[in-house]
Design a protein around this nucleic acid. Sequence first.
DNA 1: CCCTTGACTTCAAGCGCTTGAGGTATGTCA
DNA 2: TGACATACCTCAAGCGCTTGAAGTCAAGGG
Lengths: 147, 147
Amino acid sequence: MTTLTIQDVSRRSGLSGPTLRYYEEIGLIGPIARDPSSSHRRYREQDLDTLQVLACLRAMGVGIEEMRTYQANRELGHAKAGEQRDLLLQHAKRVEAEIKTLRMHLNYLRAKAALWDARSREDADAEAEANSQVQKVLPRLEEAMLG
Amino acid sequence: MTTLTIQDVSRRSGLSGPTLRYYEEIGLIGPIARDPSSSHRRYREQDLDTLQVLACLRAMGVGIEEMRTYQANRELGHAKAGEQRDLLLQHAKRVEAEIKTLRMHLNYLRAKAALWDARSREDADAEAEANSQVQKVLPRLEEAMLG
DNA sequence: CCCTTGACTTCAAGCGCTTGAGGTATGTCA
DNA sequence: TGACATACCTCAAGCGCTTGAAGTCAAGGG
């Protein structure tokens, strides 16, 4: 039965070392077993599994308390399976929306970059063109804020 | 010359009220003029313009100090136009990567949701199928972490 | 004329980490 | 064998907000 170091888990989950310690400290995971002589953490594959889901939830903006709920439901297995599915899908939706917003931001920033590029080249025509591009993107960005 | 309330600016920039106050407090923007009798903030269109860029930068994970740099370069106009463009494009790249990662998370979460759905319906076949889907998505997710 | 509603104000505390300081154990090389 | 590198540890402080408490001002209704 192989064990994983905190670095292994960090790399494969995308959560930082400090975050992994923090999650253990607040009882969201673990407690994680230690190497007796070094007192370094030794994670099981099972822990990694849990942490990969938690990492996704976190990336979707799920708060600590809701993650606790997820963990608790998980233990209850089948009884809470429906809730579990709904929690996941609900947040998936929020992220779809966020990706769209991020894309808008990206477009806006690119337009702004083109504007500064035109300025750096002292190209007045390109600057005017870039400016109208920015104006074109802006309303869509503001629209996205309201949704 | 029309002015905007903090709420107007919040809606159109996507930054929360407290965040707008915070940005002013640390001198990233402003100082913003006040209504003499109520002491409510009255923003100019020009402030909104600035804040829309800052909101995008923030959404791309740009830190406060780097935003200050952006603001300072802006005043210098043409002299720093090249740097300005590069700062914007550099972060645009990071966000493209992040969007990709978010998509992976989304796929993984959807697969997990399907798994819990199968469990809730006590459909062992579907559960096995969902499980193999999860296993298929996982390596791509971990891969994305390394990049 | 008072009372409520709503949008704002300041100030303080909390959240979910990240960063840094300072220290310990393991492995590698001269 | 001793010195250095690496990977981890704990503890404390800082960051960039968010949330909540407590109060001010302007408009509208009974």
